[in-house]
Write a protein that binds this DNA or RNA. Structure first.
Length: 206
DNA sequence: CATGGGATTGACT
DNA sequence: GTCAATCCCATGC
């Protein structure tokens, strides 16, 4: 059995954004003493109006139009920092929003940063996970291959997750596109859960 | 330079 | 279920 590679390379992100969004589910994200497994992502592409890059090249969107494998971090609702991975070749505006993690390392540090205890609440949303990992706006433009935020392949011994798709959350434009990708059976996925995920968790609880 | 709109969350009815 | 907090940034005068 071949071991999985230790690192992702730029070519992983230099692909169609829907492929990257699906393949990031199961990968590992680490920052400043805490880490989690990605259980939920969403894809954004400059050709559709929900994407920040839809407006073209500006100061804000220059990161999204830049090198694949770089972090695009922006402030949401004046309060939360949201983490994205820039995808596709330079000059194409595309990114994957990291929406939820299963906590695997540094859980007490996450609890301290989040100010709450329950594991299922630590990283079950895009604003929650950046708070749990200590990711701030200054990380915008940094490499996800080398850090300080490191996105790594699915750890050895972890099975490839089954993927459930659904519509993206919290947007008003292009809301019908099924560009949300969730790990089947994960309690760390943000609400609302897609129907297939609800069903799998109900089955597990029974 | 003023304005309006969010890729959210947590508290509250 | 409703709603406010709070700030970055694109747009328009």
């Amino acid at each position: 059995m071949a071991e999985p590679p230790e690192r992702l390379v730029e070519a992983f992100f230099d692909r169609p954004v829907l492929s990257v969004a699906r393949d990031l589910v199961g990968c590992r994200v680490e920052h400043e003493g805490a880490a989690g497994i990605i259980v939920e992502t969403e894809a954004y592409h400059f050709t559709e109006p929900a994407c920040h890059a839809y407006v073209g090249l500006t100061d804000r969107t220059s990161t999204i139009y830049g090198l694949p494998g770089v972090a695009y971090v922006y402030r949401s609702y004046g309060i939360h920092a949201l983490l994205n991975a820039v995808c596709e070749p330079r000059g194409v505006g595309a990114a994957v929003l990291i929406r939820a993690l299963e906590p695997v390392e540094g859980l007490d540090l996450m609890r301290a940063r989040r100010g709450l205890q329950h594991e299922d609440d630590l990283c079950s949303g895009p604003g929650k996970l950046t708070q749990a990992l200590g990711i701030e706006l200054r990380a915008n433009g940094s490499s996800l291959l080398d850090g300080p935020i490191v996105v790594a392949p699915r750890p050895a011994g972890r099975r490839r997750p089954r993927i459930v798709t659904g519509e993206r959350i919290g947007i008003t434009k292009a809301a019908e596109l099924p560009w949300r990708f969730c790990a089947l059976g994960s309690r760390s996925v943000s609400r609302p859960w897609p129907p297939a995920l609800r069903a799998s968790l109900a089955r597990r609880a029974a």
